[in-house]
Nucleic acid binder design. Structure first.
Lengths: 163, 163
DNA sequence: AAATTATGCCAACAATACTGGCATATCTTG
DNA sequence: CAAGATATGCCAGTATTGTTGGCATAATTT
């Protein structure tokens, strides 16, 4: 059905010219960033597939490993997702023995999050191919460029109030 | 319920030390990349919310604008998603008048995709805040660093066979 | 004529996000 | 101390975007 796509009649072939870096818009880097991130997350995705976990689990495991003792609220702030979205994956990670909760020593309402040994191993296994990819992307780069890339990525973040 | 989290007994507080750049793993850039991308896509997300579109629509509109006349197969290859995932959003974009299909002049099975005027406007509106963010992140960067960043992002991509 | 290709579409499912609400334990304050 | 605020957990429901597998049609290739 509806197979009469072109050929009709007076429809002007719309905008056949590529949109290039018009009006100071840097399409090139926008695309590079998309492709880079797409492939950057594909490595851990492939590993996680086997464990039945997903990207969300990856992020949680990563940040808990980096900041042991962080609270649920800290994590929500870092990931910028809602309580419910986090709750699901966090629960699974706790039940699977990758993360442990400990009541906060001062404020006992808080759940401080710590990696277990296998949580640490998982985080490491996931980070490893990403790190190799980064190293490969940096091949032949000067120290200035390496620092420049870090500064660039850092500068891409939102600049917020109370951080 | 189950509120007895810490305090129990012999459970050793597991792994309270932060995982730092262990064994040559570059956690810093991994994180920077995550934060950068998180905020990078947040600008278009906010705009798309109003139109009832999502990230998937953004990507389609972007690439069709960049490569007018690309086919559905090209797009699938670029986005690395399945036919069905693409079909849904593409259909919506065509029905909403942002993208047009034209049967291929040589191979009439192909649907060549073109932006309409409003498709081009949408792509531009979405790219604009991203481009401003990029420019801000580049503030004060030397030409060498700018090139280095591009090379870095490019190097993060998979290196494939038949491209 | 038969096989292959490019595409469209259907049904079903999974992961991850969202909202809004309610419950509990705990801390803070009047 | 009672009341309110806070940190967290959990439930129900929904949306987006991804997946698989299959079937249909038109057009091209063999």
């Amino acid at each position: 059905m509806s197979r009469q796509t072109g050929s009709k009649a007076g429809k002007p072939e719309p905008l056949a010219t590529p949109m290039e870096d018009t009006g100071g818009i840097d399409f090139e880097i926008i695309e590079l960033f998309f492709f880079a991130y797409r492939d950057f997350v594909s490595d851990p995705d492939a590993i996680l597939e086997k464990s039945g976990f997903g990207r969300a689990h990856h992020r949680v495991v990563h940040f808990v490993n980096r900041n042991p003792g962080m609270t649920v609220a800290d994590l929500l702030d870092t990931l910028k997702i809602t309580k419910q979205s986090l709750a699901r994956v966090l629960k699974q990670l706790i039940e699977s023995g990758y993360i442990r909760q400990v009541a906060g020593p001062e404020d006992r309402r808080q759940r401080k999050l710590y990696p277990t040994k296998s949580g640490r191993e998982l985080a490491l296994a996931l980070a490893e191919p990403q790190s190799r990819r980064i190293e490969r992307a940096f091949e032949g780069a000067s120290p200035q460029v390496r620092e420049g890339v870090k500064a660039f990525l850092s500068g891409m973040r939102d600049r917020k109030k109370a951080d």
